[in-house]
Simulated assay, not measured.
Amino acid sequence: MVASNLNIAHYWLDHLYGAFMHRMRLSPPFFSKGWGGSKLELLERMTRQLISQGLAQVSLQLWPPPAIRPIWYTVWESRTARLQEGIFATPCDDLVRQALPPESMTARVRLLTPKNIPFHDTACVVHLAGTGDHGFERRLRLGAPLLKENIATMVLESPFYGNRRPPLQRGSRLLCVSDLLLLGRATIEEARALLYWMERDAGFGRLGVCGLSMGGVHAAMVGSLHQTPLAVLPLLAPHSAAVAFCEGILQYGTAWDVLMQDEACSSGMTLEEVRSRMRTILSLTDVTKFPIPKRPDAAILVAATDDGYIPRHSVLELQRAWPGSEIRWVTGGHVSSFILHNKNFQQAIRDGLARL
């Protein structure tokens, strides 16, 4: 009975947080400027062409990723650790780059490494941002305890977030649906390029990619497309953004009224028709349509038992699509697990890397 009541409490914490953040409209909803017009049409067309060609074949054709040359400076260093920041031009193709806001065209990363340990003796994990995770600090705190085990942390600042946020956007509330697809496309290409740089130029040992929530979806895509073995660690992540925005609590923070009246919908569509269109567009982010990672046994999914943002069936769909992967359940909701289960996330990173 106590456990059951605790589970209910975790679930309702998600809904209380969601009510405060989304239903009270203390900040603008997601997609307050509509679908995104020609940008959305371009991204839909490009993505559907890639899917029709077969993503496994396309990922081979696009290997290796474009070379990047980050410019580094030291933020701080201690007796045992060093934190560096690097910048590089986003390696996206010209059409995607031109669709990005100018602020998002330059990528920023921070790299936390153990000091005086050669990179070839150091593992490194790229941490991708969840919804609302601006800057670097939260993910650096997640990775910092792993330094003593020679596991470095690379944190990528997402397009549309932090210093890469366009001036009219408030917080993480993307202005258009097209921005969500742009954010994902650029994040995936930048993460793939970083992993290739870490392997080829920096000479790190074992590599991994992880992320919480939205970052977990992107991590799963990166792990699927990368051509060398990685530890892949989607944390509190759905198999598709369609689940988050059409089934989970984020649906209450979405500007459905604006989307219903957007000219791209020929005006005046019903709510059900708009939701259906959203599902169709965001089905392009369905990770189960992507190739299986090179080492599915090094893929560990961590999910919450009472997540109000990510339904249980969505996590199970991803696990089924990757035979040999593991799913670990933590007790809690999305919000409480985000706060309370860092040790479980860190253990998943250790174990994923150890399996390579």
Rank of each mutant, 00 (worst) to 15 (best):
Q49L: 10
R355L: 05
F136A: 15
C265Y: 04
H15S: 12
K148S: 14
S158N: 01
N7A: 15
E263S: 11
Y161M: 09
R277Q: 15
D262A: 12
W35G: 03
D286F: 04
C210N: 08
L250H: 13
W12I: 12
L356I: 13
W63D: 08
K33N: 11
G211N: 02
V330M: 01
L235C: 05
L316R: 12
E199Q: 15
P29K: 12
L168D: 04
Q49C: 05
A3M: 11
H15L: 14
H22I: 03
D121G: 14
L60I: 06
H334D: 00
L225E: 04
P323L: 03
G184V: 00
Q346K: 10
R185W: 00
T187A: 04
Q346W: 10
A348F: 00
M24C: 03
H127W: 11
S336I: 08
L16T: 07
V232M: 02
V125A: 11
G184D: 01
V243S: 08
W72S: 06
L259R: 10
R110Q: 14
L271A: 06
L156H: 02
C246F: 04
I310G: 06
Y252T: 08
W35Y: 13
K115S: 13
R110H: 08
L111E: 01
T153W: 02
E77A: 12
R82T: 14
D262G: 11
A219R: 09
M1D: 06
A193S: 12
P159F: 01
R23S: 02
D297G: 06
G86L: 06
S240R: 13
L236M: 05
G324N: 02
N342W: 05
W256F: 14
A242L: 13
F136N: 10
E44W: 12
T113V: 15
A231E: 07
V126N: 08
R97W: 10
S59F: 02
A298E: 07
K289H: 11
H334V: 10
L6N: 08
R312N: 15
R97C: 06
L55S: 05
Y11F: 14
